[in-house]
Amino acid sequence: MQFYEDLVVGEIHRFGAYAVTREEVIAFASKYDPQPFHLDDAAAAATHFGRLSASGWHTCAMTMAMLVERHRDTGHQGLGSPGVDDVRWLRPVYPGDTLSVETELLEKRRSATKPDRGIFRTATRVFNQDNVMVMSMTSRAMIRTRDPAGTDL
């Protein structure tokens, strides 16, 4: 089980191996981001992408899947997130790519109003199989404390 008290500022973790498939790129884009370069080879070839590419929002969703799997594996006592501070899509993600995630804990603090939880800020970086960073984001999240009374301060 991983609680607020177990988080170490500055710690970096690398994990995940998400295989991007053509079928998933098209299915996601068809439903959520139906731009031609996410749906059609000829349309994509005529753009700066050069070929069919995943939606940036799909990249976010694939990243979230890897984060949730990691949290499940570590017993992370997450309580959701109040939001993402920024997202940057740095390079296209293509069918055939395999994505992985790197997280860095930037800061943490106990909630001022709810001592049963902490709040932390994380830099998340996503890489393809060639170790090229394709996306970055900074976000905040909440996590249960081991000591809900806050007496370990």
Rank of each mutant, 00 (worst) to 15 (best):
G118V: 00
S30V: 06
I12Q: 15
L153H: 10
R22K: 15
N131A: 12
V132D: 15
D33F: 01
M64A: 13
E69A: 15
S139Q: 10
P115Q: 00
P34V: 11
A123H: 07
R140W: 07
Y32G: 02
R140L: 12
G78S: 14
K31T: 14
T63R: 08
M66C: 02
Q77S: 13
M1Y: 12
S81K: 10
R146C: 00
D6P: 06
Q2C: 12
V20E: 01
N131Y: 07
S53D: 03
R70G: 00
A112S: 15
R125V: 10
G78A: 13
F37M: 11
S136R: 08
T145P: 02
S100I: 01
S100P: 02
V8H: 13
P36R: 07
T74F: 06
I119N: 00
T145L: 04
C60R: 08
R109E: 14
A29F: 10
G80T: 02
D130W: 04
L52P: 09
M135S: 13
R140Y: 08
D73Q: 15
F37D: 01
T59D: 13
S30N: 11
D86R: 14
G75V: 05
S53L: 02
P36L: 07
P82K: 03
R51A: 11
P34K: 10
L52I: 13
S136T: 14
L39Q: 05
T74C: 06
V8D: 07
A61E: 03
G150W: 01
P148C: 04
P115R: 00
E24V: 07
Q129V: 01
K31V: 08
D6G: 02
K31Q: 15
V93A: 00
Q35L: 15
R51E: 06
H13M: 12
M62R: 08
V134P: 01
I12S: 13
D40C: 03
T138I: 11
E69L: 14
E69K: 15
H13P: 03
L67V: 12
L99H: 00
V132I: 08
